[in-house]
Simulated assay, not measured.
Amino acid sequence: MKILFLDQSGKPGGAELCLIDIAKPYQNNCLVGLFADGSFKSLLAENHIPVQVLTTQNIQVRKDSSLAQGLGSLRQLVPLIAKVVQTARAYDLIYANTQKALVVGAIASFLSRRPLVYHLHDILSPEHFSKINRRIAVTAANRASLVIANSQASKTAFIEAGGRADISEVVYNGFDPQNYQIDELVVNQTRQQLGLEGKFVVGHFSRLAPWKGQHILIEALVQCPQQVTVILVGDALFGEQEYVQNLHQQITTLGLENQVKFLGFRSDIPQLMSACDLIAHTSTAAEPFGRVIVEAMLCGKPVVAAKAGGAVELVEHGINGFLVTPGKPQELAQVINDCLHDSENTATIANHARITASQRFDVTNINQQIAQLLTKL
């Protein structure tokens, strides 16, 4: 089976990292077409996955775009659609991995007469998308032969927005557990390099954005002992520099300068997670899946997650992690303090998390599920 994968991003986010794992088994019979150049292209090449940048023109449509803005982007899309149609004729199916890729892929699928698969990595809700963008996404996705949702929460939101239940299947993201087995010597070196020795380290791994809730973790930190230190791994992506400035101001106002470290974008995520005592997920809106949650579990670290969206499908409170009400720093602080003072119970929960995550999200099993769905097409 020859597959043309489409993705709008030049930067590797959660959907893009998932695409690498899905494309690997087809690396001799696939092409990943990108709508932007960047580090994601290099990452694909490093994994020996054929890749081509199909356009260098920025598509001026965002999740909150209006109808006028959407129509204004059509002129940009025409040359790209033509290129995708021409390319698709050499492949058996089109696999759209993001929403802009879906729109282009749906039109190209019709013109090239190739079946379309859409991998849904989003919750199509008003909190995340404008009304017109939800309508466009659902209309385009309903033309697909298959919609793969990355969680039950994503599938439910898709159907509630008008999506077809008969073409929708849930397949969670896959991971290679071996990538998260970090030597204790490396862990100690990482803590030493970051000046975290003797600290109880709470890690937050996400781009810096208001809905990701880093400000909630900082507010919770006020209610914790001074030995608790937070590391924020990630940076602003989509014009959210003002939020980053607000975070720094919040830290200064609360007198937490010595307890919060900004590490920016990093590629050594498993090593950094392994150097933490607890991983916090603090999204204020429902998360479609929660890749960071599973990665932390695979590192054998306890996770406290916001109780909404896909996170509820990953975490059983008190069994393999902790769940707190989104936007409630006092609840988050309570979990942090409990983990600090009850290390034995915390270690038991973390160990159970590693075992269950290794079984549920092994990339080999996930790829088999996807291959079976694609074969049916």
Results as ranks from 00 to 15, higher is better:
243 Y>G: 11
121 H>Y: 03
297 M>H: 09
326 P>V: 09
159 I>C: 12
58 N>E: 12
224 C>K: 12
98 T>V: 06
335 V>S: 02
267 S>F: 07
320 N>S: 05
133 N>C: 05
163 G>F: 02
68 A>W: 00
205 F>T: 06
120 L>E: 09
235 D>V: 07
376 K>A: 14
331 E>P: 10
38 G>Q: 03
37 D>E: 14
266 R>C: 06
169 E>D: 08
144 A>T: 10
82 A>F: 13
297 M>S: 09
214 Q>D: 09
200 F>L: 06
291 R>G: 05
359 Q>W: 04
18 C>E: 10
162 G>M: 01
135 R>K: 15
86 Q>P: 08
336 I>S: 05
91 Y>D: 06
338 D>Y: 14
41 K>E: 14
150 N>R: 08
226 Q>D: 15
66 S>H: 00
273 M>I: 15
126 P>F: 00
298 L>M: 11
134 R>T: 01
110 F>L: 15
167 I>C: 03
260 V>W: 02
317 H>Q: 07
182 I>G: 01
371 A>S: 14
105 G>M: 07
83 K>I: 01
82 A>M: 13
278 L>H: 07
113 R>F: 08
265 F>W: 13
147 V>W: 09
287 E>C: 03
274 S>L: 03
161 A>G: 04
290 G>E: 04
276 C>T: 15
79 P>G: 01
176 D>I: 11
182 I>H: 07
316 E>P: 02
116 L>T: 11
301 K>P: 06
27 Q>W: 06
355 I>G: 00
36 A>G: 00
126 P>H: 00
376 K>V: 13
15 A>R: 11
274 S>K: 12
98 T>S: 15
315 V>W: 05
201 V>P: 12
69 Q>T: 01
255 G>V: 12
171 V>C: 09
223 Q>R: 13
231 I>N: 06
303 V>P: 08
66 S>M: 01
165 A>W: 06
136 I>S: 00
298 L>Q: 10
